[in-house]
Design a protein around this nucleic acid. Structure first.
Lengths: 242, 242
DNA sequence: GAGACACTGTGTACGCTAGACACAGTTTGC
DNA sequence: GCAAACTGTGTCTAGCGTACACAGTGTCTC
């Protein structure tokens, strides 16, 4: 079990399948994949908060302490669950249209994949350990930028920018707008502020009323994505002009 | 205390100072602001996880149940703490250079403000209620875009894009790069993969080695910000050309 | 002034969490 | 055959958010 490894490195070894499995002892009734699968099912159906060691264990008909034979902490279980949920990366090499079309497809696929796992944005904030699937998605996007003239740092920063945008627009609500909304509608308190005290937030009040007037509700994710890709196109054009 | 209001609306009423304070009864020893301040101090010094009702209460020399006289749940306390941490929005009207210079300044100020509260990105994911300060920051950014020809929806989506980027690059690490790092360094396991099995992630391996070679570590936040602003500039130019 | 009322902070209790540890049972290598 | 290594279980602790009953305190009404 490589108990000598501490924390992150132990988790890395698990995620990347570097565990040496024992020869002696009783046959394990579980394996890491079944555990991660069970946790994933709970998270998808009932939300991330419903995933407790107890709950996962009971779904697998074992006691919660049995899980600790396969996973050193809940954090580690979540890491396994996240990489399982992210799933294998796509192959974009057949997408026609150059880097931009590939990144668009990449974003579309990533977003679609996350739609089934709405807890992912929240779970993938902060410091954590990446699994092979997640790195694979990064690889796919970086590969799309390989021949653009961007250097390695720029390629990775571009992917970081893209994936961050997907995460943001996936999370803040299912529609992906500001979190002042319940079901896409303004809270009564805020609606009152914008309507009856427009001088408090003049630009915002105006923007909101013009937005509700026109009604043409474009997807904030698409909007942001287009801006980002436009921005990338500029720097890429600059690089290849040199 | 407006007990009739449920959940979010109750929290809104608190954040926006719409609570009717009672006349009878003993003098309260606390007030919402002191509680939020105490919670904020704990979060800044010891992280968001250290903020428990017990801990906040003991810092204020009361029992934890006393806090529930001022706050209906921990979620509500966090909302108050977040808006306090975000702080009053800046006045950008004196910034010269048009919308782009204003948004750059806005991003710089927001990022600087969040630097003292590294827990904010994680705490502001998911669904929640916005306070007056947070709305004020949005107002400041929307105001910068008021005369650009963008419609209300586009203005708000642009601000969402900007703030999301700040949050992403603030959180994933203090340096703001991919979360495969401990102290900005690759984990031994990943370093091994990229060095000894470059065929597994060819584009990424190449990008990483070229990045470490050049060493010119540009800030991923600045990089992304520039791309976003460039993208916005394009659409704004298109709007004003019409 | 007397009482009702509304509010205060406290103490106790409940169900939940992650995880440490000791233990008995099972499989394998020597 | 026996020791070593591993399994799942049961028990335990410390902590969490929060519901609820309670005694004390201030004010408003009569």
């Amino acid at each position: 079990m490589d108990r000598t490894l501490a924390g992150d490195e132990r988790t890395m070894a698990m995620l990347w399948g570097l565990r040496t499995q024992p020869t002696r002892g009783p046959r394990p009734t579980l394996d890491l994949d079944r555990i991660a699968q069970a946790a994933l099912g709970i998270a998808d159906k009932e939300g991330l908060a419903a995933v407790s060691m107890q709950r996962v264990a009971s779904d697998l008909d074992v006691t919660k302490m049995a899980l600790y034979r396969y996973v050193s902490s809940k954090t580690e279980l979540l890491a396994a669950m996240i990489d399982l949920a992210i799933g294998p990366p796509p192959d974009l090499s057949q997408v026609a249209g150059g880097w931009r079309a590939r990144l668009e497809e990449w974003a579309r696929l990533l977003s679609a994949s996350w739609r089934d796992h709405p807890w992912i944005p929240g779970a993938t904030m902060g410091r954590r350990v990446m699994g092979p699937n997640e790195v694979g998605w990064v690889e796919a996007a970086v590969a799309a930028l390989a021949d653009t003239g961007l250097d390695g740092t720029e390629q990775m920063d571009s992917v970081l920018l893209m994936s961050g945008h997907i995460r943001n627009t996936q999370s803040s609500s299912s529609a992906g707008s500001f979190p002042w909304t319940t079901d896409g509608r303004l809270s009564p308190t805020l609606a009152d502020v914008f309507e009856n005290q427009p001088e408090r937030y003049p630009a915002l009040s105006k923007a909101i009323s013009s937005a509700t007037d026109s009604g043409r509700r474009e997807d904030p994710r698409e909007y942001g994505l287009r801006r980002i890709l436009d921005g990338l196109e500029l720097v890429i054009a600059a690089r290849s002009a040199v």
